[in-house]
Simulated assay, not measured.
Amino acid sequence: MRNKKLLILYFILLVIAVSTMIMLWQHKTHEIPPRDYEQIKKEGVLRMVTEYNQSGYFISGDTIEGFQYELGKAIAELSGLEVQTHLEMSLAESFKKLSDNKCDIIARNIPITSKIKEEYLFTEPIVLNKQVLVQRTAEANEGKQPIRNQLDLAKKTLYIPKDSPALLRLRNLEIEIGDTIYVEEDELYSSEQLAIMVAKGDIDYAVCDQQMARLSKEQLPEIDIDTDISFTQLQSWAVRKDSPVLLDSLNSWFNQIRANGLYDKIYKRYYGKR
């Protein structure tokens, strides 16, 4: 009887072990292999991930627009590749997709820091940008003057999108002013949506990059965007460390787009005069 129970136990353990091995094998077979330019060119498809907003990709009527989207279109024409655009609002999730080989490029204005350069490769700068405070104008805020001195951010609550690059800057700013800045990372709303909430009076302060703030200001005259949170930063697209040839190709395409004047036309359309 005891031997029979042991046989049953061993059989159950064997079934569990075999099932686990099958699951691991299936998972491995579904892993996407790394891709550099050679593999991308062979397939003829370049996958980029960007965010759904005026800076990345958005639909206006029956037209697809967006600063990053139009740069992608220009690259498609130069390279002969089909550029597929995937949407992801979270920067952290975008980096995960890149690391998992689900995309080849993160097409966003990403601030380049020494820490992030250890893990990814970055193109030559796409834009010069900085973080700014989004608040209401005096006229839209019962005569209360906007904050102009960063010291006055002490004990204030500032909203940013989840995983925003602005978080690191705000933590450093806390040290600089020697006081606490309360930061709320919103998991639902983008920088554009937070700017709308500021304009409506739902929240008092948000932080986003200057380029996006300028786009929001055109639609929201109630907001003030003239208080800087950071110095001017270089911002670029990101690729994996194992895609150095793709990086060189992107830089070459960007140089051609700049040389023929197309970059300036696209930039002016979305951000105005440089």
Rank of each mutant, 00 (worst) to 15 (best):
E142Q: 12
A74Y: 00
L173K: 02
K273H: 11
Y52C: 14
V207P: 02
A154Y: 00
K28Y: 07
Y52N: 11
T232Q: 15
Y205E: 07
Q233C: 07
I181E: 14
T227R: 04
M197E: 10
L91Y: 08
D202L: 04
P33T: 03
H30R: 06
R136M: 01
R274M: 08
K115H: 13
L194W: 00
E38S: 15
M197I: 10
L158W: 01
A107V: 05
N109H: 10
K268F: 12
L9E: 09
P33M: 03
N101R: 04
G261L: 11
P161W: 02
I266E: 06
H30M: 05
S190L: 03
Y271D: 03
E119S: 15
S191H: 08
I22S: 08
E218M: 08
E192F: 09
T232V: 15
A199G: 01
L167Q: 11
G72R: 00
N101L: 01
G178R: 07
K155N: 15
K200I: 08
Q84W: 00
R214V: 03
F231R: 14
K41I: 05
T20A: 04
D202Q: 04
C103E: 05
H30F: 02
E119D: 11
E82A: 10
N251Y: 15
N53H: 13
S114N: 13
K42W: 15
I116Y: 12
R35T: 10
H30D: 13
L151V: 06
A17R: 06
P161S: 13
A107Q: 08
Q233Y: 02
Y271G: 03
Q211I: 14
S252I: 03
K268A: 06
